[in-house]
Amino acid sequence: MSRAEAVRGASPLWTLGLLRSELITTFRRRRTLALLGVLAAVPVLVGVAVRIETGDGTSAGGGGGGPAFLSQIINNGLFLVFTALAATLPFFLPMAVGVVAGDAVAGEANAGTLRYLLVAPAGRSRLLLTKYAAVMAFCLVATLVVAVSALVTGALLFPLGDLTTISGTRISFSEGLARALLIALVVAVSLIGVAALGLFVSTLTDSGIAAMATTVGLLITVQILDQIPQLHALHPYLFSHHWLSFADLMREPVYWDDLTKNLGLQALYAAVFGSAAWARFTAKDITA
C-alpha cells in the first residue's frame, strides 16, 4: 500500500507523461490515421456531389431529403460543416471511436504489451483513466477533422456569408462560425458514451479485434433499436437517441431541452461504463 501511496503522491507529471505517450501511440497508428483520412474524405465527397448535381443551376436536395441542412449548402458553404457532421455522426464517427476505444486495452493485451505497461508504477486506475482520456481526445480530433475538412471544402466550392438559422432569423458569418465550433464540440461530447462503452468492452477480452467488433456491433444494434417505433419507451435511454439534437444549436433562440438530455445521457453512459470498466480492469488477471 505504501508504495502505491508514494507513487500517487508524486505523480501528476507522471500521469501527464503517460497521457502523452498514450496520445502519441494512438495518433501515430496507421489505423488511426486511416480512420481520420476516411472521415476527412466524407465532407469532400458530399461537397463535390452537391456541386456537381447543382452545377446546372437547379436547387439541391429538393423536398428536404438527405442529411440535415443539405439544401442550404449551395447558398452557404458553412452549412457543409453541419451537413457533414449530421452525415458522419450516426455511423462513421462512432465507428471510428469504437475501433479506437475497443482497441485501447484489449489491443495491448493482444499484442502482449499490457503487462509491460503495468510494470510501470502508474496503477491500473490511472492507466485506465489515461486510456479513456486518449479515446476522448480522439473523439474531439475526429470531429474537428470532419468539421475543418467540411469548412475548407465548403469555402472552396460554395459562397460564404451571412446565414439563415433554421428558425428563419439571420446571423453573421462570424457567429455562424462560432456556432459551428460549438456544434463540433457538442458532437465530440456526444461520442463519449460510445467511448466509455468501447473501453468497457475492451477490458472484457484479450482480443482487440473482438472488442472492436463488439463495440461496433453494439453501435449498430442500438441504432436499429432506435428506429423501431414499438420500442419508444426504451429510446430516451439509448446513447444515440439525442445525437442529432446538435442541430438545435442552429435554432434561434437555441432550443436546449434535447441538448441537455443528450449531454446528461452521455455523462450517464460515461459514469456507468467507465466505472464498470474500472471494476473489471482493476480486478482482472492480466495474463498477456
Binding site: 428536404g64 440535415a68 442541430a247
Partner: peptide, 13 residues
C-alpha cells in the same frame, strides 16, 4: 409560430 422538426423547423412569421 415555429414547428420544431428534426434538425429543421417550419416557421410562420
Amino acid at each position: 409560430v415555429s414547428l420544431l422538426e428534426n434538425a429543421a423547423e417550419y416557421s410562420l412569421i
